[in-house]
């Protein structure tokens, strides 16, 4: 059965408190190393895997785009950065 993958990220210009906390932890872990962690920022997003029963039709693609925009993400705080329909036409 085909799987469609939707990636959602917090908007670049907005604070990502989770990513900030992980960045801090990475820097703490590598503070003994001279070069530091070498990582200046971490941002945390979400990956949704949607398993579908039938073929990935144009109608289904459109529905998934709507679901991604309306339910899986909140356009005020997040962006849908990618939808992978499992083929080259994504």
């Amino acid at each position: 059965m085909p799987t469609i993958v939707v990636d959602v990220m917090p908007k670049a210009e907005l604070l990502d408190p989770q990513g900030k906390a992980v960045t801090g932890a990475l820097n703490r872990l590598s503070s003994s190393r001279e070069s530091g962690s070498g990582i200046s920022e971490v941002r945390i997003g979400k990956r949704f895997e949607l398993t579908v029963e039938g073929p990935v039709t144009e109608e289904l693609r459109e529905r998934v785009r709507e679901i991604a925009a309306d339910i899986l993400s909140n356009s005020v705080i997040e962006d849908v950065v990618n939808i992978d329909f499992g083929d080259d036409a994504s």
Partner: peptide, 17 residues
């Protein structure tokens, strides 16, 4: 209410986590 678009904007994790 913000998720239902009855009020504008959004609410995220407290800045201090």
């Amino acid at each position: 209410l913000v998720e239902a678009h009855l009020l504008p904007g959004g609410l995220i994790r407290n800045a201090h986590q």
